Simulated assay, not measured.
Amino acid sequence: MKLSVYNSIVEIMHKHKSRDCLPLIVEKYPDFSLSTIGSIYAQDYQKKMRKTHHIHYNPAKMELYYEQYLRGVGNKERHVLLRLANEIELSPALLARIVLERHLSTTKYEGENPPRSYVTKLMKDISLISDPLLASEIHECLVSDDHYGAHVDNIKQSIGHEYEFKLNRILDTLNLAYIGEDQMRTRGFDKTPDVKLEVPFSVDGHVINWIESKASFGDEYSHKGYLKDQFWSYWNRFGPGMVIYWFGFIEELDTDREKGIILSDKFPDNIVRLNPNSVIK
């Protein structure tokens, strides 16, 4: 995907401020799947939450949100947290956590902030929340939030595993020898790609020693982070390799091919197998 097209898609998303715009974008850009557009939306939404996080986690704001919640339930209103999250343009799961923190601070910790680990524990198991009405409101936020919370984390992890299995099936079908993360860790490697090829192959003249599978879209923010935290570490340990962004990526980011990291949106069909006898053990 060209950067200009990516920017146009994000601009449409900012105008609509809702996932309801995704089918409209797919209709306008039929070359891209709903999964690709959905991944772009999720990443842009998360970037917005990171940028505005400090605003909502201001103590005065947190107290205001808690008071608004109490006022709403006191008036027998329903869906109080969801309505408030929509009004202030905040992730429902993040608002639920704020309100839970303030509730615990008021009712259990005598004005002190509750331990973050305890709040996280309650967010993962709402049956531990003593106030059934608050537990119900938080549960509604969690199941309605497409981008944050334990449910979303589990879904992302499941999708990630699905595409790792897809990569493994392709390698098995092609009879390419490889080892996975678990095997690499047993050999003492702390930074491990999803796949380390036992015998490298080449793509467009570039030797590939390892493959990293990303079940997401490769935008500038995420790609720069991955380069710093993962990809260059793999390059230092195993040599040149390939990253597969299964939901696509911004084409202008594929600038490190000559340095040893190439990007793709699928497993390439033009690989050239190297002679295993030529590989130095």
Rank of each mutant, 00 (worst) to 15 (best):
L3G: 15
S4G: 05
S4M: 01
S8V: 09
I9A: 14
L24G: 08
V26G: 05
S35K: 14
K51T: 11
K51D: 11
K51L: 11
T52E: 06
H54L: 13
H56L: 08
M62G: 14
E63M: 03
Y66W: 03
H79I: 03
L81R: 01
R83W: 03
A85Y: 04
E87C: 07
A96F: 10
R102D: 01
N113L: 13
P114R: 00
S117I: 13
T120G: 11
K124W: 00
D125M: 00
S127V: 04
I129K: 02
S130P: 07
P132V: 05
S136C: 08
S136V: 08
S136M: 09
I155A: 12
S158K: 03
E164A: 15
D172L: 07
D182M: 08
Q183H: 09
M184F: 07
D194N: 02
L197Q: 01
V199N: 07
P200D: 03
S202V: 06
V203C: 12
N209E: 03
N209A: 12
W210I: 10
S213M: 01
K214R: 08
S216P: 09
E220Q: 03
H223N: 00
Y226K: 05
K228Y: 09
W235M: 13
R237S: 13
L253R: 03
D254S: 12
E258N: 15
E258H: 14
I261S: 05
I262N: 04
S264N: 07
R273H: 12
L274Q: 13
P276W: 00
N277M: 02
I280V: 13
